[in-house]
């Protein structure tokens, strides 16, 4: 027991120091400003349109005021969750791209490694500290939104809404965690911070812009003409395309949060007429929505863990020289 607490102490010391560093850095202040600004902008737009959205009784989601706050827009600015699918990678990359190489270049890594600490503790401290900071930021925003909504509208929060909003926050944090572990891994691999930042941004751009184009091109050249196919074949090809697209973490993220924030989404793949027959356009319970996005969430966590494992592998046996 005693030795365990002794081992944990350097870790918490490192996490404390890293968090303090993040909070004091200009980079983080700029990122917070960016996210808070988009939050305010999208909230402003959705508040202006909230009356129309909740008054639309044809929409099964109209009872969920707080989910509507997050998703409603008049198309002048994207809703907050779409904004986040762009900003979350930026947040993760900018908090992690120089985690190890800046320490190495300033000569502090050797000094740190000469102390009686485990190497993986350093990686973990970098990862955990950034996540703690990001989590508190998102949690604060979500609570601010709910509190602000309560004050402005006076409408009670449904327990289901609260769960869905927290689910959205958790998935967003997992998405940031993926980009964070990817950029930490790159910061170990590349000695120049600029190289690792560029590589991380390159991967992000590839997945958000080019990946879908590549998939479409590949599919167009391989897919037979749909008019010669049976319905089952079309569906199976469709599923194949969707699954290929789901390799991209951004796709997983937007699938997952769309399902959580719009309770009437019942499937992420193609749905046949037979399946839709007699279905009442109603909302799913929270548990069902979670079951739909479970593969997406596991995929995100798995990519995060594998990036982190790779970082660990690269770092553990490496020679530390300044």
């Amino acid at each position: 027991m005693k030795s365990q607490s002794n081992d944990a102490r350097p870790f918490s010391v490192m996490v404390n120091k890293e968090i303090a560093d993040h909070i004091r850095s200009w980079r983080f202040i700029i990122l917070i400003a960016l996210i808070v600004l988009t939050f305010i902008a999208s909230m402003y737009v959705s508040l202006a349109n909230i009356k129309q959205a909740t008054g639309n009784t044809k929409d099964p989601n109209h009872v969920f005021l707080y989910l509507k706050l997050l998703t409603t827009t008049d198309n002048s600015v994207p809703p907050f969750h779409v904004f986040l699918s762009f900003l979350a990678p930026l947040l993760g990359i900018s908090l992690g791209f120089d985690a190890i190489n800046s320490e190495q270049n300033s000569g502090t890594l050797t000094r740190l490694m000469a102390q009686p600490i485990y190497r993986d503790n350093l990686l973990l401290a970098k990862f955990v500290s950034a996540l703690v900071v990001v989590s508190s930021l998102f949690l604060t925003l979500a609570l601010l939104m709910i509190g602000g909504g309560l004050v402005i509208t006076g409408v009670r929060v449904e327990p289901q809404e609260l769960l869905r909003i927290f689910g959205f926050i958790v998935i967003t944090i997992a998405y940031v965690a993926f980009w964070l572990s990817l950029s930490i891994m790159l910061s170990i691999q590349f000695r120049q911070a600029a190289t690792s930042a560029l590589t991380a941004i390159g991967i992000w751009l590839f997945f958000t812009i080019f990946y879908q184009i590549v998939i479409n091109l590949a599919v167009k050249s391989f897919l037979p003409d749909p008019s010669f196919l049976t319905q089952e074949q079309v569906i199976s090809y469709n599923n194949l395309i969707l699954n290929l697209q789901r390799i991209a973490p951004s796709q997983l993220y937007s699938d997952a949060i769309t399902t959580l924030l719009i309770p009437s989404v019942r499937s992420l793949g193609p749905v046949t007429m037979e399946q839709m027959a007699r279905a009442i356009p109603s909302v799913l319970p929270f548990k069902e929505s979670v079951l739909i996005v479970w593969p997406q969430v596991s995929g995100l966590l798995a990519s995060t863990v594998s990036c982190f494992a790779l970082a660990y592998y690269l770092f553990m046996r490496r020679e530390i020289r300044s």
Partner: peptide, 20 residues
């Protein structure tokens, strides 16, 4: 290495500190 590093102080050739 942990047991060794508890007893040994090492100053690298280009020692660096946290500038902030």
């Amino acid at each position: 290495p942990i047991a060794v590093k508890k007893k040994v102080g090492y100053m690298p050739d280009s020692v660096g500190f946290y500038d902030n």
